[in-house]
Amino acid sequence: MTDSHTPQPLPQAQDFVQFAIESGVLRFGEFITKAGRKSPYFFNAGLFNQGHQLVRLGQFYANAILQGAVEFDMVFGPAYKGIPLAAIVTAELARQGRSVPFAYNRKEAKDHGEGGLLVGAPLQGRVLIVDDVISAGTAVRESMALIRAAGATPHALAIALDRQEKATENGQDVPYSAVQYARRQMGLQVCAIATLTDVLGYLQAVQTDTATAPPLHPYREQVQAYRQRYGVDGV
């Protein structure tokens, strides 16, 4: 018989939210986004900076990719944050029985040694781009151009968090998110470990946990209000 007071395992997405909070990667308060919005939360994947965190992060990415039935032949990490992400994801995929090559780019072309912008395996086939989040989609477009120039196909994108909010163009809100744009206009398969909906679900779940609820309880309404103001509908 299950003890009603025993915490139940969280779904993978909310488990990731908890992991991000405990790692100081997902924070609540008052932050200004690239679009100039005042956000009650901030996600900085660069703060996953310990070995054990990277191991677990790779597991979350690989699980999301495999469970999402993402089609790909190799992995690409855009400089700079995408480079370690591509490495840990490729390593975890291999541990789970799916060994694929990976590559990444430099910000500036190297004029000695092997030279060029690209490092790692030759770009070929269907390429999965791995990054942390996307906002304007600039880094994704740059990656797609590099991949196509090498004769490969940019096919999919894996990110850690989908903010599910309106993108901006020329300083104006548009009625779709960066993820929706990547799917509809860029033609990419997109999978995210977690979404803002999962963040809200986690904040709701911890309200009954007296050890966690006090510092997080006030933020659920703030995040919900932000979602109502800037959120997008559908996928």
Rank of each mutant, 00 (worst) to 15 (best):
D3Y: 00
H5C: 12
P7G: 10
A13I: 08
F16L: 12
F16N: 13
F16E: 03
V17P: 00
V17L: 03
V17C: 11
Q18D: 07
F19V: 04
F19G: 00
F19S: 07
S23N: 09
S23V: 07
V25K: 06
R27P: 03
R27Q: 12
F28V: 11
E30Y: 11
F31A: 04
T33N: 07
K34F: 15
S39G: 10
Y41I: 03
F43Y: 14
A45E: 08
F48N: 04
F48E: 02
N49V: 07
Q53A: 09
G58S: 07
Y61F: 14
A62N: 08
A62T: 15
I65N: 01
G68F: 03
A69W: 01
A69S: 12
V70C: 03
E71I: 08
D73S: 08
M74P: 02
V75S: 06
F76Q: 00
G77T: 00
P78S: 01
P78G: 10
L85M: 11
A86M: 02
A86W: 02
V89H: 07
A91Y: 14
A91D: 11
E92V: 12
A94S: 08
Q96M: 13
S99V: 14
V100M: 13
A109F: 04
H112F: 14
G113F: 14
G115H: 12
G116Y: 08
P122L: 15
L123F: 02
Q124M: 07
Q124H: 12
G125M: 10
V127D: 06
L128H: 02
D131R: 11
D132I: 12
V133Q: 12
G137K: 05
V140T: 13
E142S: 12
S143D: 10
A149W: 09
H155V: 02
H155P: 03
A156M: 05
A156Q: 06
A160L: 14
L161Q: 12
D162E: 05
R163D: 04
E165A: 07
K166F: 07
A167F: 10
T168V: 07
T168C: 11
E169W: 15
N170V: 09
G171C: 10
G171T: 14
Q172K: 11
Q172P: 01
D173S: 08
V174C: 07
P175N: 01
P175W: 03
A178R: 06
Q180V: 08
Y181R: 12
Y181L: 03
A182W: 05
R183A: 05
R184H: 13
Q185M: 05
M186P: 00
M186W: 02
G187H: 07
Q189E: 14
V190I: 06
V190N: 02
V190E: 05
I193N: 10
T195I: 04
T195Y: 01
T195R: 12
T195L: 00
L196N: 01
L196A: 02
T197H: 04
T197Y: 00
L200S: 10
G201D: 04
Y202C: 05
L203E: 06
L203R: 00
V206N: 09
T208K: 02
D209L: 02
D209P: 06
T210G: 09
A211G: 03
A211H: 13
T212E: 04
T212C: 06
P214R: 09
P215H: 10
L216T: 07
H217C: 15
H217E: 15
P218A: 12
Y219Q: 05
E221Y: 03
Q222P: 08
Q224N: 10
A225R: 15
R229F: 01
G231K: 05
V232W: 00
G234E: 01
V235S: 03
